[in-house]
Nucleic acid binder design. Structure first.
Lengths: 191, 191
DNA sequence: GTCTATATTAAGATAGAC
DNA sequence: GTCTATCTTAATATAGAC
């Protein structure tokens, strides 16, 4: 994973990632992935023994991309830990607005669609959530460690607001529920 | 809908509701619904022209059941409007514990799985969310109307906590994230 | 690693007698 | 309204040459 990846494999994972995100896992057929990736069946199954294995690779790519794609840019843009949290929330907000409210959290979507799952997929989803938790918990610790604050609880609430506010705005096809929930959360943080 | 429903139709909707909830919509095959409902293909398609139409009936049943199945019992059990909110949250908590953390919000699950949808299904999901919003907003109004509180924003935050806390506990397969998020929310309400 | 062709099963849905 | 039988297409996956 450290050196440059095989181009074909990479193209397959990126195409699958986009389609799983837009349509969901079960609603996406292998044939569609093959067509959009411009790859033949034999190549895909050379790299991945099954559709589920491909999903696992997608989840690994989310895990690997969390830092470089989301956390690092936000940390570079904002020095204050609390503003980093709102910077992250604003990323979601912008994604909602740019996609006419069709954007959903890729991990949250898969988490709810794959609910019953109990194998590597479930573990990778949990790993992704744990990585998000760690980043947010780090910021909250930096901001509130000296005070009498339940950092772990505040982290759980923060993630709940992110996922729950996104879900509501997407369903209602308007930004208000997201903005309102975030505003209440900000007020609660007391900053 | 006011008189007693056809038994076969009812059985189909109930079976589909359970399977869609446990497995998701796309992961559930018509053959499985037919087998578990003990009904033949011809009967199902007599009542519902398509799988999507069946999903719409399921979503209508959730809408119709929200009051009798969830809101009314909670209102009967708790007089205080704030305790009604926590009574509702405790329903989710109990469901999580009783299902070994496989329980998910049926509407939330479908909302994220059906994201791209744009027809009757999306509208019915939005209607369900709106009905939840109305119930919670009513309780929050009763509790805080006299004070300087953004009732609409607090409603959005409440729903976000419900959905987001449930999602986290389900993914982590433990109750802590749910309890922590709810505790922070309660602290925030200042009651 | 990639190609074409194809196997196999399941999907959603329909036909037409009763 | 219900039955059995079946259609059609799509699904995931494989075979075997190159």
């Amino acid at each position: 994973m450290t050196k440059a990846e095989n181009t074909t494999r990479q193209k397959i994972v990126e195409t699958a990632r986009a389609l799983f995100h837009e349509q969901g896992y079960h609603a996406t057929g292998m044939a569609t992935i093959l067509r959009l990736a411009g790859v033949n069946s034999g190549s895909l199954y050379h790299f991945f023994p099954s559709k589920e294995a491909l999903l696992e690779a997608v989840l690994e790519s989310y895990l690997g991309g969390l830092g470089p794609m989301l956390i690092d840019p936000v940390e570079a843009a904002f020095g204050d830990p609390v503003e980093r949290i709102f910077g992250l929330l604003d990323q979601y907000r912008q994604a909602l607005l740019m996609t006419d409210f069709s954007y959903g959290c890729p991990i949250g979507n898969l988490a709810l669609e794959m609910g019953a799952d109990d194998g590597d997929v479930a573990r990778l989803i949990a790993d992704n959530f744990a990585a998000w938790r760690d980043a947010i918990e780090g910021w909250l610790s930096a901001a509130f460690s000296a005070k009498d604050v339940d950092i772990s609880g505040l982290t759980a609430l923060t993630l709940a607001v992110m996922e729950g506010a996104l879900m509501q705005a997407r369903v209602a096809k308007k930004i208000e529920p997201f903005d309102e929930a975030v505003a209440q959360y900000r007020k609660m943080l007391g900053t």
